[in-house]
Amino acid sequence: MRVLTVDDSRTILAMLHHTLSNAGFEVLQAEDGQKGLDVLKNESVDVVITDINMPVMDGIEFIKHVRSSGLYNSLPILILTTETSQDKRDQGRAAGGTGWIVKPFDPEKLISVIHRVVH
């Protein structure tokens, strides 16, 4: 199963990579929404995990683009967020986010959330 992780923090990308690849996922990475879109153009993935606050193209814009293309309506997108205020999360969902993961994430919880949205 392939996961695209989108985050501008190398630390978070590295930790996601570690956790996910240990759980048997193939992990693709992108540093911002724009790069995430570029990856999606060339690669087929089963689920996307994206940060919200990113340079160039933030997570909300990224999700909007993914959904509006019409090609990825069934692609689950999980929002990775430290926001506690809930409004970012809601914005992310309104844009088409499938679910969310709160940073800092617990590896087991991360995997179980992914299985909640992916076959």
């Binding site: 879109l37 683009h65 509006s68 293309s69 309506n73 069934s74």
Partner: peptide, 26 residues
């Protein structure tokens, strides 16, 4: 593959300009 829609979905939020925009920013 998730490239093709299998879920019943109504939408398309209007503009189909997403891809072109992405292209520009590439």
């Amino acid at each position: 593959p998730p490239l093709k829609s299998i879920a019943p979905v109504e939408d398309h939020d209007g503009e189909g300009s997403g891809r072109a925009g992405a292209e520009d920013r590439r």
